[in-house]
Design a protein around this nucleic acid. Structure first.
Ligand code: ZN
Ligand code: ZN
Ligand code: ZN
Ligand code: ZN
Lengths: 165, 165
DNA sequence: ACATCTAATGTTATACCATAACAGTCAAGG
DNA sequence: CCTTGACTGTTATGGTATAACATTAGATGT
């Protein structure tokens, strides 16, 4: 994604920026302990990297940052940490972008939808109970047993919509 | 995807197999004429290939078939044809599978959801008005202007669900 | 028919995304 | 200790997608 920090500000109010990063990180620690899995240094650092990013980060972006900090420099290092975070609900994969983003509400049972802004590349995690329910209904209608779903919307965030002269 | 024809049958009733292929193809022809775009030989053949497939096909699968029939053998040949079809509503991209599938209802205004079966790799296009509306609502709630969305569900189709001993 | 312009096709080359397989390391638990 | 399983790291490879450019086929106006 584009480097918004370098552009001197955030265009979207509701992104998972540095604001609540500490809280989320603490939540993640507790959750890992509760589930009996280890939030090791690479994994934790990977989560921090995602939390600091404005939008979603590609695996190779994460890898570069990890490598620069003394961790491994090869793709599996990043993919393993990212997959761990996704598996344990601490991050999400955004398939449309081939990228990953920190979960904004770890712990809460939430089937999320992602709102991808074409103006500023931000990715917002929106609660999607209604969407999920509707999808379950549609699936049921054709006898399909739904396991999980990917819901990704593309458009313009509030900030970028307003910025259109 | 796996080659179901070789496995001797279809496991899912509602796939875009050879049954209605002719009708869809005719519909596509008319639609292209109406929109003033050209359904050239490669494009048409690509659509046919998608229609004949049981599930979704990767771009390189399509490319191989095209190449074997005298068309170009390099990736852009397939990607261009596939992107054309997607742009004009004649095919859909399934991001979770890095694959493409023919649209089952070209022409109709339909925001579709895709039901991906983990048992037989089939991809079913389901009408998703309700889902789409719910998503629009969720987006609206945070001031997000929705352009288009990807809705992909993973689970078991009716056939595979029943086949579970 | 002819010149001209544009869309479409084809090619080479390259970039980007993701995983398999194996070797070394580290922290419990016996 | 020493075994065991989880974790990290590496090399190597495979799969997905696009940029850039040359060529060709259709449409358009004269
Ligand atoms: Zn989340
Ligand atoms: Zn924006
Ligand atoms: Zn469709
Ligand atoms: Zn199935």
């Amino acid at each position: 994604m584009t480097d918004h920090a370098a552009e001197g500000g955030f265009c979207c109010a509701d992104h998972s920026g540095t604001a609540n990063a500490q809280a989320i990180l603490a939540q993640a620690e507790g959750q890992a302990r509760a589930r009996g899995v280890r939030l090791t240094p690479v994994r934790k650092r990977t989560l921090e990297i995602l939390l600091q990013a404005h939008g979603a980060l590609g695996a190779y972006d994460v890898l570069q940052r990890l490598g620069a900090e003394g961790y491994g420099t090869q793709p599996p290092v990043a993919y393993r940490a990212l997959n761990f975070l996704v598996e344990h609900g601490l991050a999400h994969r955004i398939r449309r972008l081939n990228a990953f983003t920190a979960c904004a509400h770890p712990g809460e049972e939430h089937r999320a939808a992602f709102l991808i802004c074409e103006g500023c590349d931000s990715v917002t995690e929106a609660p999607a109970r209604g969407v999920s329910d509707a999808l379950a209904l549609a699936a049921d209608a054709v006898g399909f047993h739904l396991e999980r779903a990917t819901i990704e919307a593309v458009g313009l965030c509030a900030g970028c919509k307003g910025a259109r002269a």
